[in-house]
């Protein structure tokens, strides 16, 4: 069984989960279906030879499911009332179909299984694959890229994550302390 067949099966599975998550009325079922999408993508990463990504995706998906269930449980089970704006809906559907057509023709040029590093000899990834072990001492090339060659990216990632958590805490905190009388 070739890699294309495996990826197509997993992608169709993920697409079904996504469509169910979008269209189902019950919010808790939608959250469980988004779990199908996330864990399916984790399996796809495993088949694409990216074990680090699969591990991170599983951890992130679990945390995300806990957060979403915390937000939806015992709340607003009744579905939102259904007077639909037909003109807007038709516009969005036409836009999405147009995007699918555009993507179908635009992505014909790309060939699966032949990345740019096989065509460009001086691509940075080739340098990382050849020199990564001797220059950084890391057996995992992904680790050497994250923590050595592109460590500033990781620094930026940490600061973005820090800012997002600070923002979430500031939003979720209760009413701020009242000012003292004289001010």
């Amino acid at each position: 069984m070739g890699i294309e067949l495996i990826m197509i099966i997993i992608l169709i599975f993920i697409l079904l989960g996504a469509i169910i998550a979008v269209e189902i009325k019950d919010l808790l079922s939608a959250v469980i279906s988004i779990g199908v999408v996330g864990f399916g993508i984790s399996i796809a990463f495993l088949f694409l030879q990216a074990p680090d990504l699969a591990i991170v995706q599983i951890a992130v998906e679990t945390v995300l499911l806990v957060l979403l269930i915390r937000a939806t449980i015992r709340r607003d089970i009744k579905s939102t009332h259904s007077h639909i704006n037909w003109a807007g809906l038709i516009c969005v559907v036409v836009l999405c179909l147009g995007l699918i057509g555009f993507g179908y023709f635009a992505l014909q040029e790309l060939e699966f299984g032949k990345p740019a590093i096989t065509r460009l000899e001086e691509a940075p990834s080739n340098h990382y694959l050849k020199q990564g072990l001797t220059q950084t001492g890391s057996a995992n090339i992904v680790t050497s890229v994250i923590l050595d060659y592109r460590a500033y990216d990781t620094l930026g990632e940490a600061s973005v994550l820090f800012t997002a958590i600070i923002g979430a805490l500031a939003i979720l905190r209760g009413i701020a302390r009242k000012k003292k009388g004289g001010k």
């Binding site: 990216a50 680090d52 991170v56 995706q57 945390v63 740019a116 990564g132 992904v142 990216d153 800012t163």
Partner: peptide
């Protein structure tokens, strides 16, 4: 070996997406 650079950048992207 597959290309390590997209994997490293997507690793960053997943964590930022969680935030």
């Amino acid at each position: 070996a597959v290309d390590p650079l997209p994997q490293a950048l997507v690793l960053t992207s997943i964590v930022i997406g969680l935030g």
